[in-house]
C-alpha cells in the first residue's frame, strides 16, 4: 500500500486525527464539545507515544490529562452551564487584534523553524527507553535531582492551591457541610 509500513500508516492516520480534533477544539461552538475534542486529541497523542514504544508515557498521559485534568475542566464547564446563547461576543476590534497577533506568532515560529537543521531521528520501533523499567532507572539514577526538584515544585503548587481555596476565617456565613 503506497510503499508504507503499518507503522507509517498508523502514524499518518493518528497525526491526521490529532490535527483534525485539535482544529475541532477551536472551531466548535459549545465549550463541552471543545473539551471532549481535546480529550480525543490527547488520546491521539497517547497513540503516538505507543508508536514510539513508550507505553508508560502513553498511559500516564491518559491518566493525568484525560483522566484527571480534563475531567476537572469538564466538571467546571458543566457546572457553569455555558452555551452559545450566553457566550460573550468579543468586540470586532479585539478579534482583529488577536487574529493579527496569532498570525505574527505563526510567522515567528515558521521563521524560527525554517533554519533548524534536520535531525536524523533514530528508528524508534526497537527503542526500549519508554518502557517503565528503563524509564525508572534513568529517572532515579541520572535525573534524580531534577525529579525531586520537580516534586517539590508540585508540592508548592498544591499548598498554594489549598491556601487560595481556603475560606476566610471571619466569613459572615458559617461554612455549610454537605452542599453537593
Amino acid at each position: 500500500m503506497l510503499g508504507l509500513t503499518i507503522t507509517q500508516w498508523l502514524f499518518g492516520i493518528l497525526s491526521l486525527m490529532a490535527i483534525m480534533f485539535a482544529l475541532m477544539v477551536v472551531f466548535t461552538r459549545s465549550p463541552v464539545n471543545s473539551v471532549l475534542y481535546l480529550v480525543l486529541t490527547f488520546f491521539c497523542i497517547a497513540g503516538h507515544y505507543l508508536l514510539l514504544n513508550a507505553q508508560f508515557l502513553a498511559v500516564v498521559h491518559i491518566v493525568v490529562y484525560a483522566g484527571a485534568i480534563m475531567v476537572l475542566f469538564l466538571f467546571i464547564i458543566m457546572l457553569m452551564n455555558l452555551n452559545t446563547e450566553t457566550e460573550q461576543q468579543k468586540h470586532i476590534i479585539a478579534r482583529i487584534i488577536s487574529g493579527v497577533i496569532g498570525g505574527l506568532l505563526l510567522f515567528v515560529m515558521v521563521g524560527a523553524l525554517k533554519g533548524a537543521e534536520q535531525i536524523n531521528i533514530v528508528q524508534s520501533g526497537a527503542s526500549q527507553i519508554g518502557l517503565v523499567k528503563n524509564l525508572g532507572n534513568v529517572l532515579f539514577h541520572e535525573f534524580l535531582f531534577p525529579f525531586e526538584v520537580a516534586s517539590i515544585l508540585l508540592l508548592a503548587a498544591l499548598v498554594g492551591a489549598i491556601m487560595i481555596g481556603k475560606r476566610e476565617p471571619a466569613s459572615p456565613t458559617p461554612p455549610k457541610e454537605g452542599l453537593l
Binding site: 480529550v39 507505553q55 508508560f56 498511559v59 484525560a66 483522566g67 484527571a68 475531567v71 466538571f75
Partner: peptide, 20 residues
C-alpha cells in the same frame, strides 16, 4: 502489557466520562 496495573488505573479514570 508490561504496564497492566497502570492501564487499569487509566481505564478507571476515563470511566467517569460516560457518566459525566
Amino acid at each position: 502489557i508490561n504496564i497492566g496495573v497502570i492501564y487499569l488505573l487509566g481505564v478507571a479514570s476515563i470511566g467517569v466520562y460516560g457518566i459525566m
